[in-house]
Simulated assay, not measured.
Amino acid sequence: MRALTIRQPWADAIAHGTKRTENRSWATPSKHLGTRILIHAAAATDKKAVLPPEANVGRAFGRIPIAQRSAIIAVATLTECHFDKGMQCCNPWGMDGYFHWTLTDVTALPEPVPAKGALGFWAPTEEIVNAALRQETGVAW
């Protein structure tokens, strides 16, 4: 199982809100489409983040608990990837000129699982995967 690191508040908007599009400058490797991935909240925040006013972000902006940083906070299925060339698809979360990665079946974890992230897809330890999936399903993998 792979993890994807996303800066706050975007990771929180995925885990606890309605954000189901992750904007990236690169296409999803096809081997990851249709797989479950761990959503990792980066230690750093996106200081330039402007959340869409009409979007449900789940929590008040700026009130994200410190435990929700540098931790696995959700599990999701990565189902699709397409490039937005001015189509204004995936509103309000999709950005023009980026690849849109579609996330479905998002499950927020009741307790964040501390983990150091990395760029791109990365392989968490078996202990981290099990700690996250136990919360999602009640069963270790």
Rank of each mutant, 00 (worst) to 15 (best):
Q8W: 06
C90G: 13
D12G: 13
R24Y: 09
R36D: 11
G120C: 07
E126N: 11
T79A: 02
G138T: 12
A11E: 09
W101C: 01
T104G: 00
P65K: 09
E111H: 10
K19R: 08
G34A: 09
K47F: 07
Y98S: 00
T5K: 04
A44W: 07
I72M: 03
F83M: 02
T79C: 12
W141P: 14
A44P: 04
P92H: 14
P65Y: 00
S30N: 01
T104D: 12
G117C: 06
D105R: 14
R36M: 12
I37K: 00
Q135V: 13
E22M: 01
L133P: 01
A42I: 11
L38N: 06
N56E: 08
A118Q: 12
T104F: 05
P9Q: 07
E54T: 13
H32D: 03
P53A: 06
T102L: 12
A3Q: 11
A123L: 14
W10V: 04
L51C: 14
A49F: 04
L38Y: 02
T18G: 07
M95Q: 09
R2K: 11
Q88G: 00
G94F: 01
T5P: 06
A74M: 04
Q8E: 15
N23W: 03
Q88D: 15
P65W: 10
N23M: 10
V106M: 05
Q68N: 13
H82S: 09
C89Y: 02
A49D: 05
V129C: 10
E126R: 12
T137A: 14
G58K: 05
G97L: 12
P110D: 08
K31D: 08
L51T: 10
A43N: 02
W101G: 00
K31A: 05
I6C: 07
N91F: 12
A27D: 12
P53G: 00
L119H: 06
I73R: 02
C81S: 12
C90R: 08
A11Y: 00
T107L: 08
L133H: 00
N130D: 15
Y98P: 01
V139Y: 05
E127G: 06
A27S: 14
L51G: 04
M1S: 15
R59E: 05
T45P: 03
D12C: 02
A11I: 13
M95P: 03
I128N: 03
A132K: 10
I66M: 13
P29V: 06
R63A: 04
H40E: 09
P65E: 01
S70G: 15
W122D: 01
A115C: 12
A3V: 03
E126M: 13
P92K: 14
D96V: 13
H32Q: 05
A42Q: 12
Q68T: 08
W93G: 02
L103V: 04
I6T: 02
I73W: 01
T137G: 09
E54P: 04
